[in-house]
């Protein structure tokens, strides 16, 4: 009993993701991340053209647009994953709580711990389920002992809605799970390092409808605890899970606003055409 209580205490100290706590650090209305006049080039080709956008803590933001419109590229700029592409070059200004993430003093390792990412294809490491979740806490030294690590693993899996399915087989390989479970494992893995922002790059495009519904449900539950940005091909999905929607076309941000407005009453002709299926 005593142990249980201790574990709960430590959970509070590690996971400062309670809506109440996070609300204090970023009052609603103050954007969590801001991007101003961002341009991205791949070699000579310009992939993103002058995009400015704010991401809020209390809403899920969806990026929609036809293939090749730059929405994933822009998403990858937000935790500097584009650094891994040698020919990619970025200008403009992206800030996380006011700190320029491309400033020389910004440590990319710290940045990515604060801005987590979930990929299009589930990519669990070829390790046990436990080690997959414990990976981030271990490299960032978030747990001081085995007990604390156990607790992080359990609470992350619980938040990702996977705990009841895997609690008896934490030592099985993460790659042995089904596609939907793997993706939730990846979300749990991202949650485990207690990020402030979670970027999701078409997280459901490789999943069946039932697994997709579970992920969408999970996004609903995580809303408010993390600033969530989701890139999706699927407009219905954007309408279901997001409160704000950004429509990208040919590397430019055409329209950004409340999801309900974008889908019912878009300001731009292009957005209307895309929403109504004129092209895409």
């Amino acid at each position: 009993m005593n142990d249980d209580k201790k574990m709960q205490e430590s959970s509070e100290s590690i996971n400062m993701t309670d809506p109440a706590t996070t609300g204090a650090t970023s009052e609603s209305g103050t954007p969590k991340m801001t991007a101003r006049n961002v341009n991205v080039f791949y070699g000579d080709k310009q992939a993103i053209n002058d995009v400015s956008i704010d991401v809020n803590m209390d809403s899920v933001t969806a990026f929609i647009g036809p293939s090749g419109c730059g929405k994933s590229t822009f998403l990858r700029c937000m935790n500097r994953m584009n650094d891994t592409i040698p020919i990619a070059r970025i200008t403009g200004d992206i800030r996380l709580e006011g700190d320029d993430i491309y400033a020389p003093q910004m440590d990319v390792v710290q940045l990515r711990a604060r801005v987590g990412m979930v990929f299009q294809k589930p990519n669990p490491f070829p390790k046990s389920i436990y080690d997959n979740i414990a990976y981030g806490p271990r490299i960032h030294g978030l747990a001081t002992g085995k007990e604390e690590l156990d607790h992080i693993v359990e609470s992350s899996l619980q938040r990702a809605g996977l705990w009841s399915e895997v609690k008896d087989r934490l030592q099985d390989s993460g790659t042995a799970l089904s596609g939907g479970q793997q993706q939730r494992l990846c979300i749990a893995r991202a949650i485990a390092v207690d990020p402030e922002v979670i970027l999701m790059d078409e997280p459901c495009s490789a999943l069946d409808p039932i697994a997709t519904a579970k992920i969408e449900e999970l996004i609903h539950e995580l809303r408010g605890q993390y600033a969530i940005v989701i890139v999706t091909h699927n407009m219905q999905q954007a309408a279901r899970v997001s409160q704000k929607t950004a429509f990208f076309h040919l590397g430019t941000l055409v329209e950004y606003g409340e999801t309900t407005d974008i889908f019912t009453n878009p300001r731009e002709e292009k957005t209307r055409d895309y929403i109504t299926g004129r092209y895409g």
């Binding site: 994953m81 711990a113 990976y135 981030g136 390092v193």
Partner: peptide, 10 residues
């Protein structure tokens, strides 16, 4: 796999 790990801040 590599991207996954890098995105965790490794």
């Amino acid at each position: 796999m590599r991207d996954g790990s890098l995105a965790m801040g490794a």
